[in-house]
Each structure stands twice: as C-alpha cells, then as structure tokens.
Design a protein around this nucleic acid. Structure first.
Lengths: 255, 255
DNA sequence: TTATTATTGTATCAAAGTGATACAATATAG
DNA sequence: CTATATTGTATCACTTTGATACAATAATAA
C-alpha cells in the first residue's frame, strides 16, 4: 500500500524501457496470452493473480507471444516462468479481443506514471488481442516468481476475487465455466490434486468447482463407476473413526 | 480447372498489390479470422469453402481484423461480406496459432506465381494467428459472394471434404466437435433450419451433426420434453400417409 | 366406399441412472 | 468395552433411456 522507494521505481522504469525497446523485435504485435491458473487448497478453488504496480488492482499472469513461437508453447513458457513447474495441464478456452478492453485507463496511467508520459511508446498503447488459457496445478509444488511489472502474487478464492483490470473478471468467469464442463467430460480435476487422495477430498474439489454440494454416498458411487480410480491402501489419520481409502487416478484404462 | 486468361491474372495481380499496400495501415498485423460456415441441405451437414486461386485446394472463408474492430464484429463483417446475411449465429471456438501453419508452401507459391516473387511483400509472409468462429446459417437464404483471392465457392459434405490448406481441416474438426456439444446444450440447431420444420427434418439434422442414427420415437419424446417446440398446423405433403405436424422453436420459455 | 400403404404420434416395458436414506464397518478416545 | 465420528455399501423410489408395439391418418388403389 505504501509508496515504493525511489530506487524501486527507477529500477522498474529502467526495466520497462528496456522491455519496450526490445519488444517489437521479439514479440507478435498486438497479441498476448493470459492464463487463469487454478489451484485447490483449504477445500477452495483458487485463482493465482498478480498485483498491478502500486494499484489495488490485480491482473492475470500473462505475457507476449514470440514471433516464431506456437501459442501453446507461449502459454506454457509464461506459466513455467511464473510457477517453476514443468508439466502443467493447459487448455485454451477463449480469445478476448474487444477494443474496449485496451482502453483500460488505470493500467496505462499507472505505467505512464512510472516511466513518464514522454517516454511512452507505441508498444503498450496499441490494441491487444489476448489468447486465454486455463491451467490446473497441484499447488503444493508451485514456487511462484514475480516479474518486472508485477511485484506481488496471491491466491484468491474464485468467488472472492479482488478488483481486476481489463476484462480479466470476465475471462475468469469463462475459465471457470469451461473448467466445470471439462471436470465432468475430461476428468481433468486430478491435475489439481496430489498423486493420491481420499474420496472426501475429491468430493470437496468437485464441490468447489461446481459451487454446490453433492450427496456423499451418491458421489462415491458415481466416481467409482467411472472406473478411473485405483483403490490403494487406507489412510490412517489418527482420528477416531474408520480410515478412508486412498485413490489414484489411472489413465491407461485397462478395458 | 483450366488456366485463367491473361486478363484475369492481371486483374487479380493488381487487386492483390493494392490490398498488400493498404493492409498494414488498416488491419492488425499477424491476426486473422477464419469462419466455419455450416449449412444443412439434402439431410447433410455442409461446410462452405473457397477454392484457392488455381489450385485444387480449398480454404475456409476468412479475413483480417481491423485495427479498431472487435473480434466478433470482424467475424460478423467477414460473414456478411460472403453470405449477404444480416443475422448470423456465430460462436468463437478456437484460436489457431502454430507457427507451422504459416509455413504452408502451396498458398505462398501460388500467390507468388500470380503477383511475382519480386513484388512479394511482408504482409502475406508474416506469421498469422487465426481466431476461429463457426457460423450456422439457414442456407435457403444465402447468396454467397466471391472475393479477390478466391473465385469459386462450394458447399461440401462435412465428411467428404476436399484437400484443405493450412490447418483448416483440423479447424473444421474442432468446429464440428463444438457444434455437437452446443446442439445439445444450447439448442443452436434451429439456426440451421427454416422457421418451421417437421420432427423428421429435425431428426435428420441431429443425425447429420452427431453422425449417428436416433430411434425415431425416442427422439421425438426427448425433444418434446425440452419444451422448446411449439406445435403448429399439420403439413400436408400429398403423400399417402399421416401428415406430420410442423414445429417452431420458441425462445421466450414461458415458465 | 373400402381396403391398402407409408408414415406419424403415443404408449408401454425393461434396463440404467439418480436422489435420498438406512445401516453396517471401523479407527481411535475414553 | 463402549461411545463417537466417519466411511463404504445397500436399498428403495423415481426418472431417464432404449426398444418395441400399436393406433391414427392421408392419399392411393380396388
């Protein structure tokens, strides 16, 4: 909340100027990637967001697409830069290209404040079309990294989001909606959990994604009937009740 | 199939040169829109394609995005230019951005043949990312238009497609897959039919989209149970059997 | 006028899927 | 050894779905 000290601002300013000079040669003009990174902790579905400079606004992690880089590769690269993870489940779900979104003033004014209006280049001023991906990560393994424009990162409950810049709130809504379908149709939920889990934990995940409760016994029956869960040993937690089985998701369905 | 006469080639050449000179000022660099236009005739699901110059290859109707134009508006504009229709059901479903697709040689060589290698500009040589939409049209109302690069248009059965350039075959596959989901979840099929229709015609549409047969009586039960069909008068076709009812799709669901 | 034919609309039955509830099994605490 | 909390399975009613039967009917042919 407090102001940054002079040194930080100058460092940021220098970094941005450097980036802007190099960008047109390296990146596709007017094209970016935004990623909605989902995680699951404390029985809640979370989204990973970055605070934009000194504002109270947050944005999705994103980046630019290199001139000879596949879209999927760009998304993966940006994610790896942020999370340090290698294998990430990624799904392209939407491309956002309304001109109004580029007219967002808060971000521009803040950037201009940092680097000075005179230095303002065409790069950030141009209209951007953003290809959006969602990512599912087992966030017990993630080590987030900050980047030049955004110095704070934070996980937010998917239905307690902060103020967001551009149309990033809409993008998150669309991402969630797509995740809900994919959870049932492609069983992608396992990417949000650790290798083994109990039926109770799995149910909490489904409830967090679908934003509604399921009847425990019916949920168990349904998921077991899919024949994608391998039952492992029991998990003894020390609690005074029956110990639940652990499960693992099996891919190569042995039919 | 035959060669074009000298006059045509020169006209094309002039048109292309004109376009290439104007394009960088008007359009987003490296960004295009491709549209998969679905129609339904003779009980078959059809896709609208354009023959590329003098080659045996076809491509999806597409175009470029203006510098201050919304993505959806660009898609709609391109569709209206091609079909002459005003109200078109449009759905964005994928953005194609592998670098390999831009390395397609057939199209480039053919273009160079027409306009001359020396005249080759950066515009067509740059890498393109394409935002893909599918469109559903009642093709009894469509009056297709040719355009500068593509002089022949044709409807193709969705599973008897010709050779396609770039990754347009993949894009059509993805479009079909998305249409299949949307047909059930969003009931978009009515955009492919005329205002009124019989249950039999509707079933043919569903069979064409899902590429499988349905049991007539169960199909009827299912669609009537959705409460989105208004039963109108009977349709007397002059055939020696019971006349089927006509139906209309009702939007404002009176609950 | 009446039987015939092709097709449409509805009913029915069995099988599968789903929501709600009951109950037995069991790991630890006292 | 009993109490407690939670887990795993079974069961019942209800809905949905697949398959089949059958009555209704518009035109044709006898």
């Amino acid at each position: 909340m407090g102001n940054q000290n002079k040194g930080d601002v100058n460092g940021l300013k220098e970094g941005i100027r450097e980036f802007m000079e190099a960008a047109p040669a390296i990146y596709m003009p007017g094209l970016s990637v935004d990623t909605v990174i989902f995680g699951f902790h404390n029985d809640k579905l979370k989204v990973f967001l970055l605070r934009f400079a000194n504002t109270p606004y947050f944005v999705l992690p994103g980046g630019f697409i290199k001139k000879e880089e596949n879209l999927d590769d760009a998304a993966l690269r940006i994610l790896q830069e942020r999370t340090g993870l290698q294998d990430i489940y990624l799904e392209q779900f939407y491309t956002s290209g309304n001109t109004s979104r580029s007219k967002e003033t808060v971000a521009k004014e803040e950037l201009q404040k940092i680097i000075g209006k005179a230095q303002w280049s065409n790069w950030f001023d141009q209209r951007f079309v953003s290809v959006c991906y969602y990512a599912l990560i087992d966030d017990t393994k993630v080590k987030p990294e900050t980047e030049i424009f955004f110095t704070e990162f934070k996980w937010f409950d998917v239905n307690k989001l902060p103020k967001l810049l551009y149309d990033h709130d809409l993008i998150i809504k669309k991402a969630l909606s797509r995740l809900q379908s994919d959870l049932d149709e492609k069983l992608v939920g396992f990417n949000l959990m650790s290798e083994t889990f109990t039926m109770g934990q799995l149910q909490k995940l489904y409830e967090a994604v679908h934003q509604k409760k399921f009847v425990r016994t019916n949920f168990q029956r349904k998921l077991l009937s899919l024949n994608v869960l391998e039952r492992l040993e029991k998990q003894y937690t020390g609690k005074a009740h029956k110990a639940p089985f652990l499960y693992r998701f099996v891919t190569g369905n042995s039919e």
